[in-house]
């Protein structure tokens, strides 16, 4: 844990002016694992119409600002999420949908589903629920926009600052060399 710096990170000065514009044009990349993806089509299309907030879906990570994790992640998909996240350009934000990325949800005792996403990539905002309804998702988006405006959504800076800590956590689950059950419970 000592790898994790306690430095307070915040956007200041010129960044704040940029943030004012950034928050109005968020392009979203959704990584549809788990059950959560079914709530996205109504959020995006005419029923709840995400576009009125200036948000739109984006097909590739390099042009996206926002990564949406929509549910549980198995180890295999975690690896892909990390690749995707690292491909995205700064500034970038992560929203985790549902209770699975927070504490494992109903998969808390599964041997292949991770329990806490924030250990492996920085999560700016978690929306709890199983599954959160489109209203909750939209409220989450608005909250993220506020965070961006206030300069508090600095997950990507945390990732740079504490890269060693994140990398260590990622390796501890993805690159095991010994049987897990011979180790200690964390």
């Amino acid at each position: 844990m000592e790898l994790y710096s306690t430095k307070k990170l915040k956007d200041e000065g010129f960044e704040q002016i940029l943030n004012f514009f950034r928050k109005k044009s968020l392009w979203m990349l959704h990584y549809c694992t788990g059950c959560g993806a079914v709530e996205l089509p109504p959020t995006m299309t005419s029923r709840w119409d995400m576009e009125r907030f200036g948000m739109g879906p984006m097909a590739t990570p390099r042009q996206a600002d926002l990564l949406l994790i929509t549910g549980y992640l198995s180890l295999k998909s975690l690896k892909r999420v990390i690749y995707t996240y690292e491909q995205m350009q700064n500034p970038k934000w992560v929203i985790a949908l549902g209770s699975c990325p927070i504490n494992g949800g109903i998969y808390y005792d599964s041997y292949s589903v991770i329990n806490r996403l924030a250990l492996y990539i920085p999560v700016d905002l978690s929306i709890e629920g199983c599954m959160p309804r489109p209203e909750a998702i939209i409220e989450g988006f608005i909250k993220l926009m506020k965070q961006i405006e206030n300069g508090e959504a600095v997950g990507y800076k945390k990732y740079q600052e504490n890269y060693k800590w994140y990398k260590q956590n990622q390796d501890s689950v993805l690159k095991r060399e010994f049987p897990v059950l011979s180790g200690e419970e964390k």
Binding site: G104, Y108, D109, N115, P179, V180, L181
Partner: peptide
């Protein structure tokens, strides 16, 4: 299907899934 598996096969009845999950992913 499994990623980098080193333990006993997971669907054997003597495999302790909760302990495995707590050990590798940490308790909440």
């Amino acid at each position: 299907i499994l990623h980098n598996w080193k333990d006993i096969p997971p669907l054997r009845k003597d495999f302790d899934s909760l302990k495995y999950s707590n050990t590798i992913f940490g308790k909440f």
